[in-house]
């Protein structure tokens, strides 16, 4: 169910990147897209009625269906990378602001 929402989120993120002219807003849209992407990845590995792929001692592990652990591992990495990108983007945004005094791309004079 949530994967449809995830796809819509990806599209919204793209829409944001396409329409917004503000540096912060664009980074924000990137984040939205990434969240959507992460949700989508998780939903790919999701098995209805499965259980979380975490080692526990209580259950007899053989008889249960796990959701696929690999996408989750991917998302963990993707989240971290996403934060890195966002941080870098914000740092650049700050540099842009100190150079032009605005976040609006349209207000910056063309070089």
């Amino acid at each position: 169910m949530l994967q449809y929402a995830a796809i819509v989120l990806i599209m919204l993120g793209l829409y944001g990147i396409l329409t917004q002219r503000n540096v912060i807003k664009i980074i924000l849209s990137l984040n939205i897209m990434e969240i959507g992407l992460n949700l989508f990845i998780i939903s790919v590995g999701y098995v209805t009625d499965g259980i979380a792929p975490i080692m526990t001692t209580n259950h007899n592990t053989n008889s249960l269906i796990y959701v696929d652990p690999l996408p989750q591992a991917l998302v963990l990495t993707a989240i971290v990378i996403g934060v890195g990108t966002t941080a870098l983007g914000l740092a650049i945004a700050k540099n842009i602001y100190s150079k032009y005094g605005t976040f609006e791309l349209d207000e910056m004079e063309e070089e």
Binding site: L14, I17, L18, I26, L105, E110
Partner: peptide, 12 residues
């Protein structure tokens, strides 16, 4: 152009 959305636009 100097706008980031151009490539994204074409991708879409």
């Amino acid at each position: 152009t100097n706008k980031p959305e151009v490539s994204v636009f074409w991708i879409v």
